[in-house]
Design a protein around this nucleic acid. Sequence first.
DNA 1: TGTCAGAAAAGTGTGGACAATAATATTTGG
DNA 2: CCAAATATTATTGTCCACACTTTTCTGACA
Lengths: 220, 220
Amino acid sequence: MSMNQDLRIENRDTLHLKVCNVIREAIIRGDFKPGERLKQSDLAEKMGVSRMPVREAFRKLESEGLIKLEPHKGAVVKSISIEDIEEIYALRSELEKMAVYQSVDLLTDQDIKQLSSLVAEMENADDADAFVQYNIDFHRLLVKRCNWERLNSFIGTLWNGLPQQTPHLLTGQIETSNTEHRKILEAVTKRDKETAANLVSEHIYRTGESLIESIRKEGK
Amino acid sequence: MSMNQDLRIENRDTLHLKVCNVIREAIIRGDFKPGERLKQSDLAEKMGVSRMPVREAFRKLESEGLIKLEPHKGAVVKSISIEDIEEIYALRSELEKMAVYQSVDLLTDQDIKQLSSLVAEMENADDADAFVQYNIDFHRLLVKRCNWERLNSFIGTLWNGLPQQTPHLLTGQIETSNTEHRKILEAVTKRDKETAANLVSEHIYRTGESLIESIRKEGK
DNA sequence: TGTCAGAAAAGTGTGGACAATAATATTTGG
DNA sequence: CCAAATATTATTGTCCACACTTTTCTGACA
């Protein structure tokens, strides 16, 4: 029963998994810009591995919606249009609604305590970056206890599809979000999954609308 | 069906794509049973290629929900439980509702004519196999014109998640399905996307319920 | 007899060489 | 000088060989 070498978990992962994580974070962080071509040999050399793990990582990243992979052409970081944003938020609205509905009953008291503190952090957040991070944590935690594997995976894919910079465009309506978050928290605390699910759905939908509007306004 | 030439000189696709298609069909056809372990070397040898294209095919099939892939362990054909069926039908109900809503406006007159004849075929179908196939075609065609790429991919994954034999358990309620199909067709013909979407959603949800019930009854 | 350590076998993971394809540069004909 | 055809180069796709992990087998020891 007693495993002795549990400490070196790093090395128990396969290479292509580690490679995948590194590339994913680079894309999400914005090191690789949307539309940029990713060359197997470059990445392989840069990371000190052969091309094979990189190829496998590409497949995974494609399935997560982060890159587009075409035969003999290579990998390109996906760039997203307004229509994409529309789709992503519409889907998130429906899917996270379902996930929250499943999750509410299963959240521990500590989960809820953490949700509560995240709401407080968002209300007190000075800069947009902090708010965005707490917001991500809040939404992740909301659906954390949902046991539907496929649903979780779909939601994850949708989150990956959003470039990192978009949340900044939402800063104009932080107060609205905060009051919505607090209402959601209330419903969750009462274990009222119906209300919580509906509130989350509306919240996400409205956020999407307002994001699209501000993008159109910026002409960006 | 002539097939021998398919594998020969279709050189425009890459090997791993062809391999992927072959394995996918084998799984869907039931040649590989749920829970069965798939060995890279076996498949590679059997198809006359190296293990590499097989590995890549595995990644794709995993993303489609057909197999489960664990590091150093290999690939296993996914087997599903009643909970899985519950999840799949709940998700299909919501997602195909959205897809139909998008699709109805964009269906061509010929699409609708084809839908109509599929409904007729189902009503006249003698054996279950034929009905099941027409049913699949009907549902696919309903969402065919939906432009939301992610949504389509999600729906495809869900369809893959259902083993081929499960729809046959539904033969007890073909009449119910037929009347529902006809109502859906009516709404689509009138280009009433709201109604069509709701009908599809309810139809799928009810189908799932009744499938689960009949599985429980069979003790299978 | 049971179980536990270590060896052998089976199977997956990775690296490097080569083949096939697409992109680019060069030549050729008008 | 330009356009089309051809040669060159860059990059991806596939194969094979070997390293690493996991599983299975074997045998010693309590």
